[in-house]
Simulated assay, not measured.
Amino acid sequence: MENQTMTMEFIFLGLSSNPEVQMILFFVILIIYTITVLGNFLIILIIRTDCGFHTPMFFFLSHLAFVDICYSTVTVPKMLANYIANRKTISLVGCIVQIFSFIHFACVDFSLLSVMAYDRYVAICNPLHYSIIMKKEMCIQLVGGSWIMGFLDALINSLPLKHLKFCWVPSINHYTCELPLVLSLSCSNTFTNYMLLFGSSIIFAFTPFFVIVVSYIYIISSILRIHSAKGRSKAFSTCSSHLIVVCMFLFSAFSRYLKPSSTSPTDLEKVVSIQYTVLTPMFNPIIYSLKNKNIKMVIRKKIAKHG
């Protein structure tokens, strides 16, 4: 039993066992991943090279785009490799590293979304003091705090996993190592792990969520007090893309992680997880590009220049 535990590896069951379906999924997800990397990289390139985008909002957006690339890379390449591999496995160490990386980048992503919500709150509710509050040092501290929060959240939840024992070679009915699934497969006492997961969720998930909710309560109340329809439309357009991204990320992630853990997630739960692990990082640059006239203008100029 000890030797089996020491040489532990997990078997991924994936989204489908049908070889033809697997090949279709391989090409579809490969296209999505390519769009994700290129789209987010384009956002970073435009923001960093065009001085017109050197503002706090776009500074945060460039970091969000970088995190989305990392966030997607944690799971998608391994998923693609498993579609064409004979043995769809991952080692215990590899699984822990994947869990650490996923939690880290997901927490940084969510924290940055809350930072961007606060930035929109200051811009709309306190515009006269915006340049004083959101100065460069403040922006760097907010981004740095997001990265630190992500690291602490990942460390708290992944470090205790090395003490878990598995009494058989478990099959994960999923395409990636999700923390609740791995805990449900262990034959060790996982009460401490669940308490750490619950406690870290309160601190690192609901705190940014609270910031986002409070920020948008003030934002919406300020917009409703604007008398002109044009002024309300302009104010709302500055935060509408961010609100869409927040809703996509929150509804899908919360619906998955707030449910009781199960060793066999349903097909619907797998589809939901695809949305926040694969699709959301791809949609982010598309949403921000379509909703921002300046970004669309720069993209058209670069296409025309190199076309």
Rank of each mutant, 00 (worst) to 15 (best):
K259G: 03
T280I: 06
I31K: 06
K296M: 14
S114W: 01
M6T: 15
S221W: 04
S241C: 14
S72L: 07
F151K: 04
I133E: 05
N40K: 06
N193K: 13
S252L: 05
K296C: 15
H242Q: 09
V211P: 01
G39W: 03
V21Q: 15
S184D: 13
K296S: 15
P19K: 08
I84Q: 08
I103K: 02
P170K: 04
M138E: 13
L179M: 14
H242W: 10
H306K: 14
F236E: 03
N3M: 13
M248R: 03
N3D: 05
K88T: 15
L112I: 09
F166W: 10
L112Y: 05
E178H: 14
S111F: 06
D68T: 03
F236W: 10
A106R: 01
Q22I: 15
Q141G: 10
T55P: 00
I132W: 05
R232W: 04
F166R: 07
I286W: 00
F105D: 11
N284V: 05
S101F: 14
N40C: 05
L92H: 15
F209Q: 08
V97M: 12
I244G: 03
L45A: 13
I84P: 03
S237G: 05
I24H: 07
P19R: 07
Q22Y: 13
K88Y: 00
D267N: 14
S255M: 08
K135I: 00
G52Q: 07
P285I: 01
I124F: 09
L45K: 12
F204D: 11
Q22N: 14
H163R: 06
C125G: 12
V271H: 04
L185P: 05
T49D: 09
H63L: 02
H174E: 11
C187Y: 03
I99W: 01
R300W: 08
I172P: 03
A235R: 01
S62D: 10
